[in-house]
Structures are given as C-alpha cells and as structure tokens.
Design a protein around this nucleic acid. Sequence first.
DNA 1: TCTGGGGTCCTAGGACCC
DNA 2: TCTGGGGTCCTAGGACCC
Length: 404
Amino acid sequence: MKQRQILHVDVNNAFLSWTAVEKLKEGYEIDIREIPAVIGGDEERRSGIVLAKSMKAKACGVVTGETLYQARKKCNNLQVYPSSYKIYKKYSNELYNLLLEYTDKIERFSIDECFLDMTDYLPNGTLLDKAKEINKRAKEELGFTVNVGVAHNKLLAKMASDFEKPNKVHTLYENEIPQKIWNLPVGELFMLGRKTVPKLYSMGIKTIGDLAKFDEQILIKKFGKHGKLIWEYANGIDDSEVHFEPETPKSIGNSITLPTDIRGKEKIAEIVLALTEQVTFRIRKYDLLANVVSVQLRTKDFKDYSHQRKLSSSSNSTREIYNTAKEILNEMYKGEFIRLVGVRTDDLCDKNQKQLSLFDDTNSKKQEKIDKSIDLLKNKYGYNAVTRGTVMNVEDIVKAKRKE
DNA sequence: TCTGGGGTCCTAGGACCC
DNA sequence: TCTGGGGTCCTAGGACCC
C-alpha cells in the first residue's frame, strides 16, 4: 500500500487568537495575544473556568480548565475575555476554506483542528513544503498562527503538531519516533488521560518509550482494548482513515449548570423540558430520530449520575421525549440539591429509516405538526422567538447560554 | 467568585432466550 | 435433582477527547 501523506493543522490558542483577531478588526488597540489574558466562562453563571490562555498567561502558570479565581491568583494583572462560539465558527470556516485549496480530504476533528489526507494531492512539491505554505498563509492571510504536524498517519501528525508552539511545522516520521517522542512523559501520548497515567507509573512506565517497549499482552490484559490502543500509539501505529465526509452525529444532548443549586422534582422537570426542547429541535434539524433518552444530574457536591431508557419506537417529538425524560427523572431523583441538569438522546437514526409504527396514531401526528410549526418559526425568527408559557423563566436561564 | 459543555467509545453486569 | 453456557439486548458509569 502507498504510504499515506497526512497533515494535522492545529490553531494556536484558538479561542484566544480568534478573539484577538476579531477585536483588532473592531479597532481594539490591544492585541490580547501579547498580554497575560485568557478566554473564560461566566463566573456569575458558575462556569468560571479558563478556556484558552495567551503565552504570557501560560508563563504565569495558568492552565486550561482551572477556575478563573485560581488563574487570577497566579497572575494578578490577568485580563479575562468572554467566549463567543459565533466568532470561533467564523474563523474555523475561514481556515477550512483555505485548507480546501490543498485537498478536499479534510477531517474537521474539532473546531480548531483538521486532518488533511494529502496522499493523492502532491503533484509538485513535498508534504513538508505544503505544510510550511499552510503555516505561512494562515498567519499572513487569516491573521492567526497554526502548528502543522507532518507524518504518515494521523496519530503521528497529531503528536507532531503538539511539539514546540506557536507557529511551527514539525515532522514525525517513523524513523524519528525514538528520538522525538520516546523520551516524553507517558501522559503526553494521545488518549492517555489522568486516570491511566498513575496506573502506568505504578507499573514502572514513565515515558512513551517505556510504554512502547512494554509487553503488549500484559497491557491488553490490564486495560483491554485501550491497552492495545496505547501500546500501538506509543509505537506510532495507527491505520485510521481521514474521515472527510461529515458524519451524522450518534448522540445529541444539552446540559446546563444552574445559576443556583435547586431541589425538587417539579423544578428540575422544568429545566428538563427546556433542555428537551433544545435537544429535539437539534435532532429534527438533522432529520434524525432518537432511540434512547438519558437524563444526567450533578449534585451540589459534584457527584454525577445518569439514567437512560430505550424508547419503544424512535422519535424526535418534544412531547414524547420529554415524557420519557420525566419518567427517568422521577425514577432516579433522590431529593438532593442539584447543580447541573442534562438531557441527551442516543442511538440516533435517519428519519427515513423509521418503519411506520402501529401506534403512529392521530395524536402523534398532531404532535409532529406542532413541532414542525414551532421549528419553522424558530428557524425564521431565531430560537428564542417561540417559548412555551410554562417554561418562560427556565428558558431565560437556558437561552442565555445558547451559542447561536 | 471553585470546579463548562459537547461528544465518542468501552466495559461490566443483569435479564432473557435457547 | 442439579446446574450448563453462549448470545444478545439493555443500562449505568467511566475514560478520554476538544
């Protein structure tokens, strides 16, 4: 098989860089990339965490995910800017359109990361040349910097783009693996998170190289499929394809941290209704049906639990899914103070695949019509144009968070 | 003024059937 | 009377990613 030519493009400090570019365009005099700054959640809504940081904030020891309170303690002149999904979407699309000039085999791995399969798109010039060109053009034409990883599979390209930042191009070919990644702490490996790293440490595995040379069978015995995966990754093995065709989602959900903890089934049910409306609106937009509904709760002391239920027949009806969600809630809720409520639909399938149920009665037809006409209005006048009278107050809480 | 929100995939155990 | 396994479906929860 032909050797694959893969790039991974990763926007440096994406949320912060994009905010900086947007602000400069608006005439803001400071480039927030040049000062100790972070993009943060909203502390009043109890989501005050660091989402992205500038290099100067990083130099103070600020890390992504920590509370703004902690970040300020490390960096007393820290500037905090709010997050805006709309801006991110705009610049993400600009980058994507630039990358389309190089190949149409692009996988949008997240809002700020893409994989490019360049295997059949190098008539003149090398993969490394293209990487350098993309790196240069992003900065010059779009105003923000990217790291580009150059390799023969996705895993190595991704590891490569994570080397020195910002605004760099790095290669990670098979013969460079021992020299470039085997000395790194094992936690740097993609798919090795905070739970597994201590376990590996206790087995004497401290670096990626230690993991690569460890007995694969023992890892499989201890960690199952994940053990096989991380051993292969440590050795640079990855056959996965660049998934350039947009896939339909397998699950769709929304959750919200409440402004204050609440208690009582009825109050929580109102939140569940508002969330269900959001979720079913999104499912219908994709022409999907849900087969499984789940409800997630987080108690005030951060204990998460969730229950789920399979529907007797697939549905995207707000009423049907809400009824199920409410049943689940009634079963699982034990009367604690609740901090976060979530509703998720899983096992989504295409609307056209649905076989007509015997129970497709006039009532559910009526519900479908109601949903359809509400969606029409929401699409025309904005999501918040139409609100159920009963959930007005809750809608205020939930809609304040909506991204679009 | 402590700790987001959106996803994917995997595992373990119980129910149920043959 | 005593006591099989294999397979599938369902649910709860966990690990990981950005």
